[in-house]
Simulated scan of single mutants.
Amino acid sequence: MKKLAYTLVIAATVGLLAACDGTPTAGNSPEPTPPTATATATPTSEPTAPSATGNTAQGNTIEIGDYGFDDIARLDAAGCGMTLWRAEESTASAGDRRFILLNGLDDDSMIMRINGEDVRFNRTAASGEEFYGQRTSQTFVSQNGGITVTANVELGERGEIESVAIREGTVRVEQGSAVVEIPVAGDAGC
């Protein structure tokens, strides 16, 4: 029952966002080809900008995939929580945005597509302002312990119906010596 309510709330929020700006909803708009961000391994702790190639002598890369509306339903990942997309997608209509991070209310509900696989994460730390079961700074570790994700966001305007915009932020993904940092925007609600 909780998952059904969770699914309905995100679907309603996304539908409202699409309706507010006059754009088509996911049900009647084509899915674009998913872009990815790839970073190469670096010997320092400095973030590596996303690149198209991502090949190194060590072979360490991180490829960040994304999700459309159909994926959210398939993964049973809709509901109260936070969705983040690449900052450059902020100008796209709400129905055409591709999400790179989905996080619900539970500490084990975060999911990302990394290196072509849907990876589930546990929240291990959170600080800053609270909003809809989220915090402005959150750290997640993959359930197999091999990947760490840090999401730092700045809140924007509150929506009319149980939502808040995420004006900007950064998602940092670390796997071994590979690091990728992606500028993001998004929303959260219930």
Rank of each mutant, 00 (worst) to 15 (best):
T56S: 15
S109F: 05
S90T: 15
A126K: 14
A92I: 00
G15M: 08
G156F: 03
I182M: 09
V173G: 06
V171C: 06
V164N: 12
S45H: 12
E130Q: 08
D96N: 14
E174D: 11
G186P: 05
L155P: 02
D96S: 15
A125L: 05
G176H: 05
T56E: 09
G176W: 04
P47G: 09
R98I: 08
I62K: 03
L105A: 09
V173S: 08
G27L: 04
I166V: 15
G15S: 11
G79L: 03
G133R: 02
R98H: 14
P24H: 06
P30R: 11
Q143Y: 05
Q58G: 08
L8Y: 00
A94M: 10
M1N: 11
L75Q: 09
T38W: 00
K2Y: 07
T148L: 00
P32K: 13
G79S: 06
I182A: 01
K3F: 01
L8C: 01
L16D: 04
R97T: 10
S29I: 12
T170W: 01
E130T: 11
E63V: 14
G59K: 08
M1C: 07
G59R: 06
T40N: 08
P43H: 04
C190K: 01
Q58A: 14
E88P: 00
T83E: 11
L75I: 07
A19S: 12
G116N: 08
I182G: 01
E89D: 15
S45E: 14
T23F: 02
A92T: 07
Q138S: 13
D70E: 13
D71G: 06
I147V: 15
A165S: 13
L102M: 14
Y132I: 07
E46Y: 09
S29P: 00
T170F: 01
R98S: 12
P34V: 12
T48Q: 14
T170P: 00
G159I: 07
L84S: 08
V179D: 06
T23Y: 03
C190M: 04
A26Y: 06
I10H: 05
S163L: 03
R120L: 08
G79A: 05
P30E: 12
A18I: 04
I114H: 04
E129P: 02
G116Y: 07
I100V: 08
G27W: 01
T13H: 06
G146Q: 14
A39N: 09
P50M: 11
R167W: 02
G159T: 09
A94I: 02
N152E: 14
I147Q: 02
V184C: 10
T61D: 04
D70T: 13
V171P: 03
A78L: 12
